[in-house]
């Protein structure tokens, strides 16, 4: 057992490449990996540029890599259909839609997804593992609380919480953090119940390891695998959910382009005559979510042992 753990830690990079190879064996998995990699790299690069732009107070940095300034208005060039000059056309103020989509991806898709899934994993791990390991009344209370949360779809609960939080962008992210963890707590609890019965946990108990060490080195490490596969799928879910909230008018920042909001504007004012206005933002969300779904499915196949490898 110790040897296994040591091997795992020695070759983090090697095992990363092994993972990439394993995932790429399946064409759908490869497609998902490519989409997700492109999404992550773009979000990092563009996100850093946007942060630099606001820190250095030089907004031009924000559209350094983009074909156009996403905020520049040009009423004479409004409602242009897709062409070589404007690959995805222009909206009602003549703003380039491709530039607006690329500009908005870091903060309207990557940032909420990363923050929400990470916090859900942390809260879910803390509550789920403690419930599964300790059992008793704590377990009972926690399971009833998750029951209450799961009685209503997370998106609808997120809508009401973010409306109570004044429907702002940060309010939307807080609301997702509040409603997104119960399913992770359930998953962690189920996994903990499985791991708890293992000999090495009993051995560790006999050895008298500290609760913190028990939590991180024995329970968290050994329960995380299926949760990572689920979290991969869930990145896509959060991006979709956030875009739904944006679509119905929650979490908007006046002046900032947001994917769901662009789609909403396009649907209500420009559809179907100016179809590109709504269709391209929607398709970009579709592609991002598709990438995470394909990748998550593939990882689940590998971990679950259904795929031959």
């Amino acid at each position: 057992m110790t040897q296994q753990i040591v091997e795992k830690r020695a070759g983090l990079l090697v095992s990363f490449w092994n993972w990439v190879k394993l995932i790429s064996k399946d064409p759908a998995g490869l497609l998902g990996l490519v989409i997700v990699a492109a999404f992550v790299i773009w979000s990092l690069v563009q996100g850093i540029l946007e942060i630099l732009a606001s820190v250095l107070k030089d907004p031009r940095l924000g559209w350094l890599l983009l074909p156009y300034n996403p905020f520049a208005q040009n009423l004479a060039g409004a409602f242009q259909p897709p062409s070589w000059a404007h690959l995805m056309g222009t909206n009602y103020m003549g703003q380039d839609i491709l530039a607006r989509i690329l500009y908005s991806i870091p903060y309207s898709a990557a940032y909420p997804a990363f923050l929400v899934v990470l916090s859900a994993i942390l809260i879910g791990a803390a509550l789920g593992i403690s419930a599964g390991y300790l059992g008793g009344w704590w377990d009972e209370i926690l399971m009833r609380v998750t029951d209450a949360f799961l009685a209503v779809p997370a998106i609808i609960l997120a809508i009401v919480v973010s409306v109570l939080l004044k429907a702002s962008f940060t309010g939307m992210i807080y609301s997702f953090i509040i409603v997104w963890w119960p399913i992770y707590a359930r998953l962690f609890r189920a996994e903990t119940l499985r791991v708890k019965a293992m000999d090495y946990v009993a051995a560790a108990q006999l050895y008298g390891v500290s609760p913190i060490r028990m939590f991180f080195r024995y329970l968290f490490i050994n329960t995380i695998d299926p949760i990572i596969a689920y979290a991969m799928l869930d990145f896509g879910n959060v991006i979709l959910a956030a875009s739904i909230l944006n679509f119905i008018g929650i979490g908007l920042q006046p002046g900032l382009p947001i994917l769901g909001e662009m789609a909403s504007d396009g649907v209500s004012w420009g559809f179907p005559k100016y179809w590109w206005w709504a269709v391209f933002p929607s398709i970009s969300i579709l592609i991002i979510a598709l990438g995470f779904v394909l990748l998550g499915d593939r990882i689940q196949d590998i971990i679950g042992g259904r795929a031959a490898y």
Binding site: L240, V279, L286, L290
Partner: peptide, 8 residues
Amino acid sequence: TWSSPPYF
């Protein structure tokens, strides 16, 4: 259909 947003 699963990975497309409902408004799409």
